[in-house]
Design a protein around this nucleic acid. Structure first.
Length: 391
DNA sequence: TCCCATGATTCTCA
DNA sequence: TGAGAATCATGGGA
């Protein structure tokens, strides 16, 4: 059955006429001779078929005339319908694919590595890593780590840059094709649905390019990771060889060093804080002794509130609390419910960070867990100790 | 004898 | 699986 016959059949169906026997040419001819509408359609089809033999100017004029023809919408609709039922229906089956598991795997990996999605550690961390990689870092063990992160940040940057380019190209190309198809739909049976389908095809094509980009990025991350890990292992092996010990001994040494270094840093900060408090409290003692007459509260009731045993440090109304080692705190009773540690402790009370350990010389145990709410409230320049049941 | 530094082991967790 | 944390074992110095 030729196209002309099929179109005629479609149009006849649209007009509510009985369907001709499409397999019989005589029947078709009979239908064509039935009336004026069929004759018009035949003329139109003849004009369309002949349009390719005409000159460009004639074809343009003919096209314009056909576009204005009263039968054009019906003819266009039938052509679209026929096209939809034949070629496009086959494509439609092939195009409705489920999400590609390979893309899902790549997406998950890029997300896990921090290449896509929100940046791990934030932009400042990446900048710091980049700076460390460029200028080096004095901390042993962190150089390679920073280097790794800097390179990862580079990969991330390239990935996003390329992704943006792809998306822009995809958008531009899609718009171009859509405009082209819309323009052509004036003379060809191209329905909006077909345009939509074409957009889907374009997106799938670009998705395959995007998948290649993701795959390349994943490979780059894997290579970087393996190089980084290999470098650490090689360094350990070399050290072990030079020292005549095993690699696990080197690992133990580094592990112990890391942990003990961290502990020492914490201890150092704690001691620095203790020293700062002691200096401030000494200064406060001098001030408190001068205002002895203004401290009426009983020390024992106040001590009970924080659960420590205090003993008078002097006759001035200030009280010392014997604690670990040689560190003492002087607490001035204010109103029986709160303590002031002295006006010079500002703006933040360093005692918040203290964790005082029990010892035989300690009169009481005053423990402030690091993650607990601070037992001090700030009022102006003063740091007040509020009741806090730590014992 | 006690304290401290250090290596090694074990367990937990991300 | 490796890093971190806790803990144990051991040797040296005061």
């Amino acid at each position: 059955m030729d196209d002309q016959t099929r179109i005629l059949a479609g149009l006849s169906g649209l007009a509510g006429l009985p369907q001709p026997d499409l397999g019989d040419p005589d029947s078709v001819r009979k239908q064509q001779s039935l009336g004026q509408p069929q004759q018009d359609i035949g003329d139109i089809l003849q004009q369309i078929m002949a349009i390719t033999d005409e000159s460009l100017d004639e074809a343009q004029a003919r096209k314009h005339a056909l576009n204005c023809h009263r039968m054009k919408p019906a003819l266009f609709s039938v052509l679209c319908e026929i096209k939809e039922k034949t070629v496009l229906s086959i494509r439609g089956i092939q195009e409705e694919d489920p999400p590609d598991p390979q893309i899902m795997r790549l997406d998950n990996m890029l997300l896990a590595e921090g290449v896509s999605g929100p940046e791990k550690g934030g932009g400042s961390a990446a900048a710091a890593a980049a700076a460390a990689a460029a200028g080096g870092s004095p901390n042993d063990g962190s150089i390679e780590h920073s280097d790794y992160r800097a390179k990862l940040a580079q990969i991330r940057q390239i990935y996003h840059s390329e992704l943006e380019k792809y998306e822009q190209a995809c958008s531009e190309f899609t718009n171009h094709v859509m405009n082209l198809l819309r323009e052509q739909s004036r003379t060809r049976p191209i329905s909006p649905k077909e345009i939509e389908r074409m957009v889907g095809i374009i997106h799938r094509k670009f998705s395959s390019i995007q998948m290649q980009l993701k795959q390349s990025t994943c490979e780059a991350v894997m290579i970087l990771r393996s190089r980084f890990l290999d470098a650490s292992e090689e360094a350990k092996e070399e050290l072990a060889k030079k020292c005549g010990i095993t690699v696990s001994q080197v690992s133990n040494w580094f592990g112990n060093k890391r942990i003990r270094y961290k502990k020492n840093i914490g201890k150092f900060q704690e001691e620095a804080n203790l020293y700062a408090v002691k200096t401030a409290v000494d200064a406060a003692n001098v001030s408190a002794q001068a205002s002895q007459a203004n401290s009426p509260a009983t020390p024992n009731s106040a001590a009970h509130l924080i659960g420590v045993r205090v003993s008078p440090a002097g006759s001035s109304g200030s009280y010392s609390l014997s604690q670990t080692g040689d560190t003492y705190f002087s607490l001035h009773s204010l109103n029986g419910e709160a303590f002031s540690i002295g006006p010079s402790l500002q703006p933040q009370c360093p005692l918040r960070h203290f964790q005082l350990r029990h010892s035989p010389n300690c009169h009481g145990l005053l423990r402030f867990p690091p993650n607990s709410p601070p037992p001090f409230l700030l009022h102006g320049n003063k740091c007040h100790c509020v009741p806090f049941p730590f014992l």
